[in-house]
Design a protein around this nucleic acid. Sequence first.
DNA 1: TATAGAAATTTACGCGCGTAAATATTGTAA
DNA 2: TTACAATATTTACGCGCGTAAATTTCTATA
Lengths: 343, 343
Amino acid sequence: MSDPKIRNMEDFAAVSGISRPTVSKYFNDPDSVRKSTREKIEAALKKHNYRPNIYAVNQNRRQTKNIGLVVPNLTDPFFAGIARTIEGLIVKAGFNPLLLSSHGGPEQEIANLDSLRSIKPAAVLLAPLGRASLDEQVAEFAREVPTVLFDANLDNVGEAFFGSDNEQSVNLIVEYLCRSGEAPAFFEVRQPINPNAYKRRTAYKAAMERLGHEPHLIQVDGQGWNFEEIGFREGARVLTSRKLPTNTILCSNDRLAIGLLSAAYENGIRVGLREGDALRIAGHDDHPFSRFTCPSLTTVSQNYDAIAARSVETALLLIESKERMKTREETLFEGKLEMRGSA
Amino acid sequence: MSDPKIRNMEDFAAVSGISRPTVSKYFNDPDSVRKSTREKIEAALKKHNYRPNIYAVNQNRRQTKNIGLVVPNLTDPFFAGIARTIEGLIVKAGFNPLLLSSHGGPEQEIANLDSLRSIKPAAVLLAPLGRASLDEQVAEFAREVPTVLFDANLDNVGEAFFGSDNEQSVNLIVEYLCRSGEAPAFFEVRQPINPNAYKRRTAYKAAMERLGHEPHLIQVDGQGWNFEEIGFREGARVLTSRKLPTNTILCSNDRLAIGLLSAAYENGIRVGLREGDALRIAGHDDHPFSRFTCPSLTTVSQNYDAIAARSVETALLLIESKERMKTREETLFEGKLEMRGSA
DNA sequence: TATAGAAATTTACGCGCGTAAATATTGTAA
DNA sequence: TTACAATATTTACGCGCGTAAATTTCTATA
């Protein structure tokens, strides 16, 4: 840009004709200096494109401008989407998001929190895996760093939780399925990784009983996050070998449903609402791809814009007040029925 | 853990009975100190769980241990997958990966590079968007920071490039389609965001001509990264309104194909290889979901394990040698045919 | 034009660590 | 035991910035 190499704030202050402490003030808050001063600095900024050394800044500031964001699995488009939304909100608030994925593993989750610790974030947004084994370590982290949970709740961990009202959403789709056809069976993995899955199972049973139907769980074996694979493999077994008590299947999540749809297709079982269709399949979450399955997947969408917004909002509040919450807030948002072709 | 609060390396050195400079040496390389010293430090480490302040460390070290990783769009499972693989390799090498997504926008890409700059990474792995408008800024970045490109190439930018051999892979699938049925038309967006898309178009034309067929491009309008949406919307128009010159369509990527499959389904057009199927559809990339479409998608897989491995390897080499490459390396890996149900 | 209050400057210190040079201590081999 | 090399310690400085206190300069109002 210009001749004299700008090595630090000292140099930059010199070329801009302002003292270093004032320049420092400017970078912490441009509006905290006089307009004429601000203009001088910004003029110099255009010429020399200097930026404060982030390490020196963070070493001396009481608080960093970093906000950690930990999701269970970035290869799941659902979490990729919500992560992106949250990132945007964090940036808009003038903070620096640090996105980490736990890749489905509790150890990685702990490792993520550990590496966040060393970055000294002002706050952390965490969508926990919810594996009991390591929950105490997560809780310990949340005691050290202001933490907001989202998507999945852990009892009494963090300052607040924002997620979906599984009871409401499952009830919504069960009711819909019951009034539009046969009562659904519930398709899920036997030992889910996600705490929400347990809530959905319970909610399914309750909804069925309330409506005067007998719940029917189809629990299949499967580990990890390959839900499509599990849904496909185990779905094929269920569809071909077992006698289904109903022609309607509600899946614990959309990714299972996608696998199950594929299994049905491979086995020549027509899914949908049209004349001659033999099976109805519904999901939960409104996965980005669920509108492009064949047939398109009827499901319940989560209000993740609201979840993202409130989570970030709360984290910013914690940062601003420099205090912890007096009472832990738990807010559940309602799901919305997405009626499509599969059920 | 213990009574005396450890605030810094000074304190920690005191409780471990070792001098601070030696402790500093230990943290830079545990093997650089005598075994008995190492054991003392590690004993203290277990008691007090001290960790060096990362900001102070990075301020003073000549080089950070950070490696930047920028992908075009994390909500695309393809990139989420390769990002995860690369992250793992970086961690294994003892470095700290910083994952950023450009969310499909060139401005965001520049913003990402900008924020990486302030983190002073030892190297950066970049899968560029390849929008001509801002390429010069990317090139400028690569001149400042050792940069390895992957997935998409930019002429003469960065120290090396690793990606797929689109010519080979497209040729592979065109040949397969031609010998197993009618020659394919090529379905793509008119003005792709991805440089690879142009290469594939060219490769398609060349392959067709070599095989004695007339190329047929089906170019549709569409902006951004909603490929499924584009494939669905425009695919429906093409399938219903236009006279297709062939019963076989090769899509520029799997996500377009997923949308197109959905459009075909909605319009009652049976896709596949079975008796009575009216259309064959093939894709490119081997998207994680492509084996669960209905029917499962025939496509070409990219060797992204190799791409990831070589990219990281090269970045580490650059870091170690503290030099730039003498000659810019470009390595293309071959695709593999994934024969499934759709073509 | 005088004057109070706001803003900028000067001066100075500290953050936690890397790193270098000189010195002291340890370990190893003859 | 001696002697030499490998390690550790002591001492000291610097990195780039935040921040505080005292002082000076500026701006707005009477």
